[in-house]
């Protein structure tokens, strides 16, 4: 199964995402921001980093990269897409996912191992988890506060589209001030998932807090195999 990883100028975790794909049995395919085709991949990861230096607004410039012109319609047509951190910001800027990511409420960059509850284990990227399962992966961002209007938040919750929530601390706070502790969401079809924490930093023994991130990369392989079987 071929998983594309897009590199924008300023992408940082592209090599890590590709490594995670390989570590979990997939084939990683580098995609360049200036490309106008997706090289026939079965799924795409938009990695973390500071695309275009986060200038203007995180993800706001990457949204206009040539590769997005082909990625957006493909995602709307069902191609699985995972946006991690800056990739999540690109997905909201592209309107593939609702809401926005704003500056952390404590106004500092924050790199911590963070506990998440998996709420939706039926997306293309989370089927190897169980609903209600708690995982610990890395969170590292300066602008990771998920916000949306109440109507959108109600819709996301009502439709089961909240994929991950932060486990709040004793004071009821989450690491970046995200509304309703939302860490990751999906689109209506469940093929596009965006989250702020980094599963690709929790796939290899000794190089991350846990192996809890592997589920993303095994889920997508299962999904791609199923899709291939149906076709």
């Amino acid at each position: 199964m071929r998983i594309g990883v897009v590199t924008f100028p300023g992408s940082l975790d592209d090599r890590d995402a590709a490594r995670a794909v390989r570590a979990c049995g997939g084939e990683s395919v580098p995609l360049w921001h200036g490309d106008d085709d997706l090289r026939g991949v079965d799924a795409v990861i938009l990695p973390g980093g500071f695309s275009y230096g986060d200038y203007l607004r995180c993800g706001a410039i990457a949204r206009f990269a040539p590769v997005m012109d082909v990625l957006v319609p493909a995602a709307q047509g069902g191609l699985p897409v995972l946006g991690i951190c800056n990739g999540f910001q690109v997905l909201t800027e592209s309107h593939l996912l609702p809401g926005a990511l704003i500056r952390n409420d404590h106004r500092k960059f924050n790199c911590v191992d963070t506990r998440l509850v998996v709420e939706n284990a039926s997306t293309a990227w989370t089927s190897d988890y169980e609903a209600g399962q708690e995982i610990t992966i890395v969170l590292k961002n300066g602008e990771g506060g998920f916000v949306a209007d109440d109507q959108t938040l109600d819709m996301l919750e009502g439709e089961g589209r909240v994929v991950f929530r932060y486990v709040p601390d004793a004071d009821g706070r989450n690491p970046n001030g995200s509304y309703r502790h939302i860490a990751g969401i999906t689109n209506e079809r469940g093929n596009v998932v965006g989250l702020m924490p980094h599963p690709e930093h929790a796939v290899e023994e000794g190089y991350g807090p846990t192996l809890d991130g592997r589920g993303f990369f095994t889920s997508i392989l299962t999904h791609a195999l199923e899709t291939a079987a149906k076709a």
């Binding site: 890590d16 995670a20 790199c111 930093h201 190089y207 991350g208």
Partner: peptide, 14 residues
């Protein structure tokens, strides 16, 4: 201090 630094990027930090 140190939580303001990314210690994981590149995936090689042991």
């Amino acid at each position: 201090v140190t939580d303001q630094y990314d210690r994981y990027v590149m995936g090689n930090t042991a």
